[in-house]
Structures are given as C-alpha cells and as structure tokens.
Design a protein around this nucleic acid. Structure first.
Lengths: 191, 191
DNA sequence: TGTACATCAGTGAACGCGCGTTCACTGATGTAC
DNA sequence: TGTACATCAGTGAACGCGCGTTCACTGATGTAC
C-alpha cells in the first residue's frame, strides 16, 4: 500500500485542503478527524503518518486557508483602475453575499474567529500572521494616504469586515443580513 | 431532596448564569454539561429537570448573556454629557482591554460569534434579537443624525466593534492587539 | 539490469475517555382531607 | 391544625456514541548489492 513520495506529498496536501474547508464549514471542535480524512478520500488511521496531532492539523489548515485569501489580494492580482479601485474591489468581494454563503472557501478569521481566540498557540500565531498579511495587502491599496495612516485604516477596515461577515452569518433575518453587508460596504468605501 | 419552588427557580437561574459564562469563556462545543452544572454547584443529573436539551440551554444562556449587556447600555444608564458622550462611552467600554480580557462577562456576539452562526435556530433568533437591541441602543446615542442614518451607522459601528474585539483576542502579539482596539476606537468616535 | 530486503503510506480494529442523555432512587415540599 | 400521600429537585450510576489516538498488519516503493 505504500505510495511514492510524490503521492504521499499530494495526499498530505489533500488532507490539508479538506481540513481547511471542513474547519471553516463546521467549526474546529465540531469537525472530527474521521470527517476530515473521509473528505480527503481516506480512512482515519492514516492521519498520523502525516501529522502529529489535531492541533498541528488545525494550525497548518489555518495557514493554508489564510494563504489562499492573502494571495487572492496580492498586487499581481490587482485589476485596472489603480489602488483605490482595488480597495473598493477588495471590500466588495469580502462583503459579498457569495463570501457570506461560502464559509468553507472564505476567510478563516470570520468563519472560525471566536474558536481561534482559544486555539493552540501555533494556530494563533498563524492566524496573527494571516491577519497582518491581509492588512499589508489592504494598506497597499490605500497608498494614496500616508503609509502609517494607510496601515491604521487597513487594520480598522479588516476588523470591520470580519465583524460584518460574522454577524451577517449569525443573524436569521435575510434582510438584516443583507443590510449589514451593504452598510459595511458603504461606510468603508466612503471613508 | 426536593426544594421549594422559589429555590428551584433560583437554581435554574444559577445554571443559566453559569452556562452563559462558561459558553463565553470556553466556547459552546468545548463546554460540557457536567462543567456547567459543576460551575453552578450541582451534579449533572439534575440538569434535565430544568432544561430539555443542551440546545435549549445554549439559547437561553445566549439570551441571558445578551440581556445583561443590552441593559447596561440602555437610556436610564446614560451618563451626563448627552447622547454623543454616551456613544463615545459605549465605544470605549466595548473596545476596552477589560472587555477583551473578560470574554466570560462580555458580549456574546464577540465571544462565540463564529459558533453562533452554526447554532440551533432558536439560538440564532435570540442572537439576532440581541444584535438589533444593541443597535437600537447605539442608534439612540447617535440621535443627532437622521434616524435612518443613525441606525445604519449603529449597525456598522457594532459590527466593527465585534470584529475588533474578536480579532484582538485571536492575535498573539499584545502590541498588535492593543493597536486594534485603539484604531477601532479612533475611527468610530471620529466618525 | 536483476534480486532481496527495508521502508513506510494507508487500512481497519481497538484504546480509553468524555460527551449528552436517561433512569432509579432520595427525601423535603406542597396538597388533600 | 395534624396527618397521609403525591410531587418533583437533585443525586449518582449507567446508556450508547463518537472523539483523538494507537497499533498490528498490508503491500507497493525505494535501496543495496
């Protein structure tokens, strides 16, 4: 049953991607190892050939999840229209109904935020790194301002977006949920 | 061992308060019934004389937790200085280091936000009600503006505060955590 | 290049444990007469 | 007001279940000669 090194590396990546999606979809505590492994097309026994513990998986899956959304907002991916238009696009993507309705593919800080605050030190380290990376991306889109002001505004904008998506997912009134996203967009792009 | 009706009502209240604090401290999934009952000074067997299920406890504990912070911000409690000073005080209280470091006594939407998004319908209903109640409180403090504008600004301010506290608890760099709270305060009271 | 053997990715059963929930039991409370 | 009995809050043991983790085993891969 042994696979080649290349195959094993692919398997590890597959587990990581499944874990990243499942944690974001159902939460960290509510997601079991068996569930993650099944989502990767494997049985649970094989997990410990690739990771030392669930905590390690959480940390790496969190890093994986952050990486994908950080990369999506990096300079090479900017659209025409200059930084300011990029900022507007970032806000509109983040606060879109699509993002709200796809936690499994969205921002880790919004989908498992309150669980991350109690996660193992390594997961918190990774999440902090992800947060500052995102802030850097956004600050670059606000480069019209003084660098320091751009960064402080980016910190605020990202926190506000994380809060808005989180609340828009809690609320059970669809109209209120949509309003929350709309208001957050309006306040952030008018700033 | 039977207690009087008055005693039983007090016990029920005690369970609710313990649950509300424990859920906010450790998260919903990570908190067991035995833990809640022990925190209330009881053994777990007696739980089902007061509640039908953990889900019901979550919903009622959530309502209990929201009630206390909604009441803390209601008009009778306003300080001198008029609405605008009240808004500033609300923001400074919510974004205080004290609130950040006391999830068990703080806002439910921040401490278990991402878990609430996946909670049972009744808990989400209760959380939604809590959110709109808080928005109403804040909007009243912004009454200088048009009512509609006050409300929309209150929605945004509350989301931003929830996001800021959540992130300030995730981040493992104390300086960054403090900066997040400071920046959020600055942006919200300057608006 | 061909053969013999060590490696190790993945399987599936099993581990102890704590979960949410149920239940027989207790004894003080509240009620009926 | 006093007595007999039903109620039911709280206990502590037990339920089945799924958790994270371990382990003996398998067989294809990679290595040594």
């Amino acid at each position: 049953m042994k696979k080649s090194k290349a195959d094993a590396a692919l398997t590890r990546k597959r587990i990581l991607e499944s874990a990243s999606a499942e944690f974001r979809r159902n939460g960290i505590h509510a997601t079991g190892m068996a569930e993650v492994m099944a989502a990767a097309g494997l049985t649970k026994g094989g997990f410990y050939r690739h990771f030392a513990s669930k905590d390690q998986l959480v940390s790496e899956a969190c890093a994986e999840g952050m990486k994908s959304i950080v990369q999506a907002g990096e300079p090479p991916v900017t659209r025409g229209g200059g930084p300011q238009a990029d900022f507007r696009a970032t806000v509109e993507d983040y606060l879109s109904v699509m993002h709200r309705d796809d936690p499994a593919g969205g921002c880790v800080l919004a989908s498992i935020g309150s669980e991350l605050a109690r996660a193992c030190p390594e997961a918190r380290r990774v999440a902090s790194k992800g947060f500052t990376d995102l802030v850097d991306n956004i600050a670059e889109q606000l480069q019209a301002k003084e660098p320091e002001e751009a960064r402080s505004q980016a910190v605020f904008a990202l926190c506000a977006m994380i809060g808005a998506i989180t609340v828009s997912r809690i609320v059970d009134d669809p109209d209120l949920s949509a309003t929350i996203l709309q208001e957050a967009k309006r306040h952030l792009v008018e700033t």
